[in-house]
Amino acid sequence: MSNDRIIETMEDAGKPKVNPALKLVLELGPLVVFFFANSRGEWLAGQFPALAELGGPIFIATGLFMAATATALIVSWVLTRTLPMMPLVSGIVVFVFGALTLWLQNDTFIKMKPTIVNTLFGVILLGGLAFGKPLLGYVFNAAFKLTDEGWRKLTLRWGLFFLVLAVLNEVIWRHFSTDFWVAFKVWGTMPITILFTLAQMPLIMKYSAEPAESKTP
């Protein structure tokens, strides 16, 4: 069975679709909560004494990040009755490493979360590619259709990009302050990812498997 056939099987025309604006909020919301809680941790602790039990600002931010992530996953499930692979895997790592961060009072764990997630996706994509299985369609929940060659090229690019993000996160958290790392996680990584995604549009258009009659004139 070709990759195109697999992707077509994965897609369900009757599946509820999330409004793009709401989807963006669900994806970025937890990160914004994380940034705000870290920058205003002392104020939050004063307003909500229970949060002070978690520790300093980074620990308050971690706790609220976990709660916001869980909320986003629940809302996504309620609306679509499905959970895309990337948010689900990322959420699991957030819960595990967030819990370790709070339990051991060591922010190294939450700082390593992006490294673990990006390395995991990078290895999965490149490993699958090495065995002739471009898995990007599964990772991105089959958002579009490409030819086999298109999936191979796009999978290679994204696999390498995930590994670059993993290395970048390691450099940032090991050599800069916690506040700088949090700010870069929100306001640096996301713009870089958006720019990279936009840069792939020529390849996506070139290898699109959509029927000619379905394309917008």
Rank of each mutant, 00 (worst) to 15 (best):
S2R: 01
R5I: 13
E8M: 11
T9P: 05
M10S: 00
E11L: 13
D12N: 10
D12R: 05
D12H: 09
D12F: 10
D12C: 03
G14S: 12
G14A: 09
K17S: 11
N19R: 03
P20T: 00
A21I: 15
E27R: 12
E27M: 13
P30Q: 04
P30I: 03
L31S: 02
L31K: 01
F34Q: 00
F34V: 12
F35V: 15
N38W: 06
G41W: 01
E42R: 08
W43F: 12
L44P: 15
G46F: 05
Q47W: 05
F48P: 07
P49M: 02
A50D: 02
A50F: 14
L51G: 15
G55L: 08
I58W: 04
I60K: 02
L64K: 05
L64M: 13
F65L: 14
M66P: 14
M66K: 08
A67L: 15
A67N: 06
T69Q: 06
A70K: 02
A72I: 01
S76T: 15
S76A: 07
S76V: 05
W77P: 15
L79Q: 12
T80A: 08
T80Y: 06
S90M: 11
G91M: 09
G91S: 10
V94P: 11
V94C: 14
F95V: 07
G98Q: 10
L100H: 03
L102C: 04
W103T: 04
W103M: 12
W103F: 10
W103I: 10
L104S: 03
T115E: 09
T115Y: 04
I116Q: 05
V117R: 04
L120M: 07
L125D: 04
L125R: 07
L125M: 14
L126A: 07
L126N: 08
G128H: 06
L129I: 06
A130Q: 04
F131K: 12
F131S: 06
F131P: 06
G132N: 01
P134L: 00
G137A: 00
V139M: 09
N141L: 02
N141T: 08
A143F: 05
F144T: 05
K145T: 08
L146R: 02
T147I: 08
D148V: 11
D148Q: 13
E149N: 10
G150M: 07
R152L: 11
L156N: 08
L156F: 15
G159L: 05
F162A: 10
L163E: 09
L163A: 04
L165H: 12
A166P: 15
V167P: 13
V167E: 09
V167S: 03
W173H: 15
R174C: 00
H175N: 15
S177I: 03
T178D: 12
D179V: 10
D179Y: 03
V182I: 14
F184G: 00
K185Q: 10
K185G: 01
K185A: 03
W187L: 14
T189S: 12
I192L: 15
L195E: 07
A199L: 11
M201W: 14
L203V: 13
K206H: 14
A212L: 10
A212K: 11
S214H: 12
K215T: 05
P217G: 01
